[in-house]
Amino acid sequence: MMYKKGKIWTTESRLAYLLLLPAAVFLIVFMFYPIVFVILMSFFKVNKLGNLVGFFGTGNFESLLKLPEFGSVIVRSCLWTALAVAAKTAIGLVIALLLNVEFKGRKLARTLIIIPWASSIPISAMLWQWTYNNDFGLLNYTLRFLGFNPPVWLAFPRSAFFANMWVDIWCGIPFMALVFLAGLQAIPQELYEAAEVDGATSLFKFRFVTLPLLGGVLTVATLLSILWTFNDFNVIYILTKGGPANSTDILITYIYKYAFQYIKFGPSAAMAVITFVILMVVSIFYARNYFREGVQ
């Protein structure tokens, strides 16, 4: 800021605040006030209508800790996020490297690869639900045709977890691939030429030119992907609703289940607050890295 601190109310800034006011009002009513209210709810006893009926201290949080499945939901959320983001990053990077090679039909391939991202996630989840169908679905038929022995994906805890995760990964791959591709194309060609003059192998160039220069993009994209993956409600809710027997619930679907299926708003609000804190921390990391990259 080039001007002195005393001048908050210049004509210019008054106009600015006026122009920001409508957006601010809506954000406050539909986003900030609900956040504050959820935080309040988490420290209160809440009745079935969602009204606060008495201060509860950390009672809601303690009741969560007493739930036997809460620990496993937390562990599962972390596992879900870590594995899915790792897979998206790896597959996205491979696709980006492939699309960075000049070949006939590259533009078409790039366009086709975007489609899973362009598609609506709820509808994609429904497509996969049918694809996973054991008797009539084409996935298991194809896998059997190829000589594999696939499970009834959505019927058992472990296979359902990975089936859900694969849909989440599948939705997230195109974004990763496109971001990495843009990052690769921003790397100056001269660096590769210089490395070639020095007799560098492809692997060496990848390790010592590509990866370091892709670092910033990698960080920002991964952080963003962590946020999205952690928040993926649609896929799990539509494919399995957290079942069989809560075995595919992650924090974000569990919050919903607690609030609107079990009608236990207090513990649900406590979980929302825990989630909020986690997301807040990752978001701040993301924002900082975003700005750092933006400045360069």
Binding site: M31, I35, V38, L227, Y256, V273, V282
Partner: peptide, 13 residues
Amino acid sequence: IVQMFSPLIVVIS
């Protein structure tokens, strides 16, 4: 930061 908030955390309120 706000664009990263999941609506899930506020859906109750």
